[in-house]
Design a protein around this nucleic acid. Structure first.
Lengths: 269, 269
DNA sequence: GTCTAGCGTTGCGCATTACGCAACGAATAA
DNA sequence: TTATTCGTTGCGTAATGCGCAACGCTAGAC
């Protein structure tokens, strides 16, 4: 049989059925619910092949069948695996408590994001004390130019790389989404100088967020912590104190990851 | 090669490499970090086989390598997949059917509450079969120290936090409302030990409720499920079976949210 | 009510595919 | 230095997973 299309660059071996099984999971993640025939179609394989893959995944709890002879969807086994993932990511573990404190202090929702494939991947979230429960962002990937977290992550790249990444996704979400590369570049410079980023109504109208960088022992930006809430609430003094609190939290997480703050502006080489 | 141990009953087909790949994920989830040789050992296959499986998973982001030629761990791709699962698995939707069954089984009213701003927020309710229809609690926020649900939610906090939260609202509703912080602290300890809470005439005279905790995949208490009814009806054996049923329901909802009950006191190393 | 179309499911036999083997290069320890 | 152990890779084989076709079932059309 011919190559299955992927044609990924060399380096790592692959196992056909495992690769296809992961594709099944992604198809289900995207579609929500699928029948065997539909999966087979998207995969480009025979019905029976798709059935065996789904069946193997079902036995292990990564996929569930809604009813006997019914459609398939992702299973709770994945949640357990993801929980194990975050539990082992020292980043999440170190930041959990501090993010919780930040959520209590500001009363708003706190998110932790990392760079993943030219987007901001939300890996952890602590809900604020507000009555209206916010959307759960964990697991979502949001374009970098439209969020405060994204700007922080972008600010860690050279301008050329940042431009390239954003250039590939010039999507606008609201009238406030930064559409001009020049404006974005200027904002990134400011983020580097001040250490934080703000986004007001840029991803969703009515949603404001502030974010600060988390650095590891090498000084690399490995993540971004944000505080987000309704725009009407995050203004003036409240916004200012949110910025301060977010920067302090991100700094403390960085310190726990081994980062040493520059002693003064008299350093560097 | 011999069977890979599972030997699950017939019914569903399986695909060897997919099954092994899932085992790899579970091994990594359990161990945190593993080398290829170690995985091969646990899997009972050759090093090269384990390598190809891990490699296939790595290409798709379900597994990450800490450094070039380093150990492997679970990857963030899993978080994305799990997010698609949790999007579907929202608390209310997942618990609805089970709460309904609990209401039928006990004949009393079932409520689902979450923590919101230092109070118990009632987010769902299923009326019991009883003729006298209870008050609809959905949307209301009740102080934590006066209800069984509240005590369950409180029991998930450190005692200091719980004391602080309750200290701010020393409100009494009836003669039975717990007014002493010492008594409450003792009750919370019991809730943690037994896994359920009871409140008799503490919020309203004539109203008795029992509640148990709902946990997510991280083990955090995310909600509480209660059965409540007239005090004259919820005594003795009826109360006992209500407690059992509530605990079972809360446990099952937790399981659907990805929670794994502690295996027992017989852990492995 | 009957018939058709489409679904998820299963046995079969072939060849594709994934396996074990052995050797390689690098890193760590002695 | 040497020796051991790690992750990684090419190769030949046969085990394994694939496509095919048929089955039972449900649901909709007529």
């Amino acid at each position: 049989m011919s190559n299955s299309g992927a044609g990924q660059s060399a380096g790592a071996s692959t196992v056909q059925s495992v690769d296809r099984a992961v594709s099944v999971l992604e198809i289900l993640a995207h579609a929500g619910e699928c029948g065997v025939t539909e999966i087979a179609g998207e995969l480009g394989v025979h019905k029976s092949t798709a059935f065996r893959l789904v069946s193997a995944l079902e036995r292990r709890g990564l996929v569930e069948q809604h009813a006997e002879r019914g459609k398939y969807r992702l299973g709770v086994g994945l949640i357990r695996l993801a929980a194990a993932t975050t539990a082992r990511l020292d980043l999440v573990q170190e930041s959990r408590g501090l993010c919780r404190a930040l959520a209590v202090q500001t009363g708003e929702t706190v998110n932790l994001t990392v760079l993943s494939d030219d987007a901001a991947l939300y890996v952890d979230q602590v809900a604020g004390s507000s009555a209206l429960q916010p959307h759960n962002w964990v697991g979502q990937r949001i374009p970098l130019h439209a969020t405060s977290n994204g700007k922080v992550l972008l600010s860690a790249m050279p301008d050329a790389d940042a431009a390239q990444v954003v250039g590939r996704r010039p999507r606008t979400f609201t009238d406030n989404t930064v559409a001009s590369l020049a404006v974005l570049t200027a904002q990134l410079a400011e983020v580097r100088a001040t250490g934080y980023a703000v986004a007001v109504d840029e991803l969703e109208v009515g949603l404001t967020a502030v974010a600060a960088a988390v650095r590891n022992a090498h000084g690399d930006v490995v993540a971004s912590i944000s505080v987000s809430g309704p725009t009407f609430r995050l203004t003036g003094e409240r916004l200012g104190s949110a910025i301060t609190a977010t920067r302090e939290t991100a700094g403390e997480v960085s310190r726990r990851l081994g980062w040493r703050p520059p002693l003064d502006r008299a350093l560097d080489g």
